[in-house]
Amino acid sequence: MAIVASGNCLERNAWICGDYVRTRSDELWTASREHILLTVSAVVIGLVIAVPLVLLARRFRVAVAWIGGLTSVLYTIPSLAFFALLLPVTGLSTTTVRIGLVVYTLVILFRGLLAGLDAVPAAAREAARGMGYGPARLLLTVELPLALPSIMAAVRVATVSTVAMVTVGATIGHGGLGNLIYDGLSSSFKAEVLTASVLCVALAVVADLLLAGLEWLLTPWRHGRRGRRTARDGAPPGPVSVVPAQPGRSAA
């Protein structure tokens, strides 16, 4: 049945077309790879910048308002405008898209990291200090593990939003799967647009699941023995604290 239907689906310009996937698998693979690379590099660079910023902000609380304010302003700027504003500096390159994406992930990660570290119970911190922990050991062995669920929540939100936002990079020629969507728009090529869109959402879902798995592996104490109350912590505060903090703007 599928074989019969796919016979002339390219000519009929069908939404779902096996022939398209078969004949353009190279194109799809190249686009997906660019998409994944852009997303991963944006999140990793965002994290690398966010960590020192958060440590700085915790040291000098005045900096929180400044960094927080500045990042909020940057976050409000639509991505298309952001890419366009970077044009004079970086031109029509992947760098332009990457810088734009890094800024958005940075905002989400900065807020998530800071909120996570701030939510560490003061008693845990006091106890560690009382046991003679220095600042570095306190951070690495007490604060970071306790803040991990909320850090991972931020990483997941940042990754999923980035996967969606990469598509806008198509306007300057580097949008991963967005390039195919943009191309399909000008030729009204339905199979190309739908396949690329579905792949894009699939990438977001897979990335989210992988990160959820990573979080599960990194926090064995939260699911070690039969459902202690802490095991529930991740679920309700996640959406409640994360959603109001960051606009659900996906690809704008």
Binding site: A164, T167, G184, L185, V193, S250
Partner: peptide, 10 residues
């Protein structure tokens, strides 16, 4: 968040 606005528009 996961669905690109651009894709839906197109």
């Amino acid at each position: 968040r996961a669905v690109p606005t651009f894709a839906v528009l197109v």
